[in-house]
Write a protein that binds this DNA or RNA. Structure first.
Length: 419
DNA sequence: TCTGGGGTCCTAGGACCC
DNA sequence: TCTGGGGTCCTAGGACCC
């Protein structure tokens, strides 16, 4: 049996942990740059605020309805996520951290009453971290996901739902909309509905061969999982990333190469740090820049440039050098750039880098410098030590007008209690 | 004024090899 | 009119997830 534990309206719940006045009120959290709504409290959902709606389109609605609005605070969400996950780790030897707010637990071999166990998980996470979670339990990951949906959407279930018998599973599937199945997205829903397939149960009645042909092996696995045949294993050790991307929209569109250089260098530095964190090196790097596609009255430009590196690396200095070379190759004067990004790919483990006879970089020295830099930045905070070209003005920074304090990750943001 | 960011997997088709 | 059989590797595009 698998349990899926999912934090309720996670980003909103994180804001509420340190600001309980938000309880019972409509709250939303916006995407980077204060762009779109990406998290909503139940009250905000009840007001009809849709996922992904651009914030500027409903600023008045926010005011009229007294909606609390927050910029994304990933330092806070990431830290609380860690705490939730380590709390969940107490409940099983096999935990898969699936996303910032979700984890699968293997319950095999735990001789327990599942309902009681789920209640205990909820109680513990709420008490230790202050985050409400929903727990769905089923014989496969897809069924655990399905159960979680019932745990969350039906208040009588009090955040818990267990699919532990064929009868219960059948009943649940007959009431479950096909588009809500984990793994069935917009396109497949459209296809299935056009054929009169409305529920998860209808989907399980299709022929395997048809599903495989039209929805590939991935779709067939989902069907098997719904039938109670487990095809998706728990992934206990997070796999190294095959591609790493750092990209941002700018708070204000930028025209000058010098400022784009600062941004691109900073993104390259982030990619390098992410590579080192997973002990990998990248053999290829791509830089892209583009104008604001929503502004149809402005001249548009979009371009990327790929560099093949002679020897794979995770050195900040080296990656920045290539990134700036790529940027120079694609930058054109006269456009208002809205976004830039750096991707690193062709990723290999750092101890399996293919050397080169003609390599003239002292890789050992680079590694020592990077280790020192990472050590200092871990201890004193990101960018305490950085490369000069990253700049210090940050004119291209994100818009974050409603950012809450980093309560748990920055000394000066720690809350004070008045007695 | 204002529209996010970061990933994975699968398949078809083209290019190549013998 | 007719034109073999068996492979690999790479890429683009499409689907999905949070």
């Amino acid at each position: 049996m698998f349990a899926l534990v999912d934090c309720n309206n996670f980003y909103v719940s994180c804001e509420r942990v340190f600001n309980p006045a938000l309880n019972g009120k409509p709250v939303v959290v916006l995407s980077n740059n204060d762009g779109c709504v990406i998290a909503r409290s139940n009250e905000a959902k009840a007001l009809g605020i849709k996922m992904g709606v651009p914030a500027f389109q409903i600023t008045e609605f926010f005011q009229k309805n007294d909606v609390a609005v927050y910029s994304s605070n990933y330092a806070l969400y990431g830290d609380l996520s860690h705490r939730v996950m380590s709390s969940l780790g107490q409940f099983t030897p096999e935990l898969e951290i699936y996303s910032i707010d979700e984890a699968f637990l293997n319950l095999i071999g735990l001789p327990v009453n599942y309902r009681e166990y789920a209640r205990k998980i909820r109680r513990t996470v709420l008490k230790n971290i202050g985050i409400p979670v929903s727990v769905g339990i089923g014989p496969t990951k897809v069924l655990a996901k399905t159960a979680n949906y019932y745990a969350k959407k039906t208040p009588e279930n009090q955040g818990i739902y267990v699919l532990d018998s064929p009868t219960k599973i059948n009943e649940a599937l007959k009431l479950f909309n096909v588009e809500d199945i984990w793994g069935i997205g917009r396109q497949y829903s459209k296809l299935l509905k056009s054929l009169g397939i409305k529920t998860a149960w209808d989907f399980t009645q299709l022929q395997d061969s048809w599903v495989k042909k039209r929805m590939t092996i991935v779709g067939l696995r989902v069907k098997k999982e719904l039938e109670g045949i487990s095809c998706l294993e728990l992934e206990l050790i997070p796999a190294a990333k095959k591609v790493i991307c750092t990209s941002r929209s700018f708070g204000e569109s930028q025209t000058e190469l010098e400022l784009l250089r600062e941004a691109v260098a900073t993104y390259a530095a982030r990619c390098a740090a992410k590579l080192r964190k997973q002990h990998s090196c990248a053999g290829m790097l791509m830089v892209f820049i583009h104008t604001n596609g929503f502004k149809t009255d402005e001249p548009q430009y979009e371009k990327n440039f790929v560099c093949k590196l002679p020897v794979a690396t995770n050195s900040t200095m080296e990656l920045i050098r290539y990134a700036l070379f790529a940027l120079k190759a694609i930058y054109q004067r006269g456009f208002r750039y809205k976004k830039a990004g750096v991707l690193v790919l062709d990723i290999v483990p750092e101890d399996q880098v293919q050397g080169s006879l003609f390599d003239n970089v002292d890789r050992h020295k680079q590694a020592v410098i990077m280790k020192t830099m990472d050590g200092i930045n871990t201890k004193y905070g990101r960018d305490t030590l950085k490369i000069a070209v990253q700049g210090s003005g940050r004119k291209w920074k994100l818009r974050q007008e409603k950012l809450s304090p980093c309560y748990t990750t920055r000394w000066k943001d720690i809350i004070t209690i008045r007695v």
